[in-house]
């Protein structure tokens, strides 16, 4: 019985994006920015940048940093700019040859 693996159903709204590099991350960044908006623009930019720094994994950070700022809302774009300025993410995991160093 081949083919037990179901094909993913096509999304009727493809522009929402289903993966890291596309609309999904933009959507997330904009959504964060929108929820901080009531605090005023400067505070919203700072809070959005901080939120991304604290909760996004490095590949997500790298992807949004490499992405087109114009595709983001102004607050989200400014927040990503700020992150880029801070160099606030570590590109790769530390070399953890855990096997030899783990407790025993």
């Amino acid at each position: 019985m081949p083919g037990v693996r179901p094909a993913p159903a096509a999304s009727p709204l493809p522009n929402r994006g289903n993966s890291m590099n596309s609309g999904r991350l933009r959507y997330m960044a904009d959504q964060i920015a929108r929820n901080f908006a009531a605090g005023g623009e400067a505070a919203a930019i700072a809070a959005t940048a901080e939120h991304i720094r604290l909760f996004w994994d490095p590949r997500m950070k790298a992807a949004i940093l490499a992405d087109d700022r114009n595709a983001l809302s102004p607050v989200a774009a400014a927040a990503v700019d700020r992150l880029a300025g801070q160099g606030a993410w570590h590109g790769s995991a530390p070399d953890s040859s855990c096997a030899s160093k783990a407790d025993g």
Partner: peptide, 17 residues
Amino acid sequence: VALDPEPGLRIPNMLDA
């Protein structure tokens, strides 16, 4: 052992990745 200082993926992010 050294730990990664960066946050990891959440479940929905894992699936996206």
